[in-house]
Design a protein around this nucleic acid. Structure first.
Length: 284
DNA sequence: CCGGGCCCCTGGATGC
DNA sequence: TGCATCCAGGGGCCCG
């Protein structure tokens, strides 16, 4: 559920909390299916920045000698969220924190007597420390991630060409992350509704690709302004909800009247994902 | 290389 | 009321 707008909202909240802080100790869940790796490498390193690529959060790490060899990579999965809490001192972080906040999978004691907690009930999130820029082993999706949709790198011609080249449903391509980064189930449905394109459409011409390109940018920008969509699990660092849910035109609108034409919205499954669209104004 | 499908996980909703 | 079943989905992986 956390997609680009949600991750960007989290990033903006984390920047003042983490920038310049040194991680004193790290704790993580040893669960056999935990998608958590090499976290111990962060101990003693300073967090230089908090960046975002698609749905990933990235931090440059710096050793006391000034060398920068590692990056922290975070992914919220479906139910991941962060909290920053004050602590009494640099004593056992995780057990103490667990009494206050449930489902803590990793925690980082900072040098300002705060602790960063990573919560993730369904364990689809990822926490990894990797050699700088070396994502292939631990985060392959990040290694092949497509352009940032709100940057100049997201070129309409390349986007249209990629859609012309494929035989998959257009929604599957939006979720793929290689064509464009950061779009998930909510904003795929929203962008397709806005561009009036049927999510199962396997042929999207140049003109409609242009509309979709524009719709993706508009929807994501509008959602960032409202700090994302809280539909079920997504929470910001301060525990608050994103305010885009009331603006949703497609996602979660099954059986409700289309906000454009009044036809009952229809629900189906595409690429193993629940998909809502207007059967009247979204034509294949 | 690409497309399609299955699986990981667990809280909440639904059904009996 | 209580138990079983279903459902949500980002992304890794396997197979054709």
């Amino acid at each position: 559920m956390p997609e680009l707008p949600e991750v960007e909202s989290v990033r903006r909240q984390l920047v003042p909390e983490l920038t310049g802080r040194t991680v004193v100790t790290a704790w993580w869940d040893a669960h056999p299916h935990a998608r958590i790796s090499d976290v111990h490498l962060i101990e003693g390193q300073r967090i230089v920045d908090v960046r975002r690529r698609g749905k990933f959060l990235l931090s440059t790490l710096e050793r006391p000698d000034g060398s920068r060899q590692h990056e922290l990579v975070l992914h919220l999965g479906m139910t991941g969220s962060f909290r920053v809490l004050p602590i009494d001192g640099p004593s056992a972080p995780a057990p103490v924190a667990s009494e206050v906040v449930t489902h803590v999978r990793a925690s980082f004691v900072l040098d300002d007597d705060h602790v960063l907690l990573f919560r993730d009930p369904r364990r689809f999130g990822r926490v990894s420390v990797v050699p700088t820029g070396d994502y292939r082993d631990r985060v392959p999706t990040l290694a092949v991630l497509g352009p940032e949709p709100l940057s100049e790198d997201f070129e309409v011609a390349a986007f249209a060409a990629a859609l012309a080249r494929t035989s998959s449903p257009v929604k599957a391509k939006l979720l793929d992350q290689r064509l464009v980064a950061g779009v998930g189930n909510i904003y795929a449905d929203e962008a397709l509704w806005r561009a009036r394109i049927h999510p199962a459409s396997r042929r999207v011409g140049k003109a409609r690709a242009g509309l979709l390109h524009q719709a993706i940018r508009e929807v994501l920008a509008a959602a960032i302004e409202r700090e994302g969509t809280t539909f079920r699990d997504y929470q910001m660092v301060n525990g608050q909800s994103g305010r885009y849910a009331e603006q949703l035109d497609a996602y979660g609108q099954g059986d409700l009247p289309c906000r454009r034409c009044g036809t009952a919205m229809r629900r189906t499954v595409i690429a193993q994902r629940g998909t809502t669209y207007c059967p009247s104004c979204q034509r294949a």
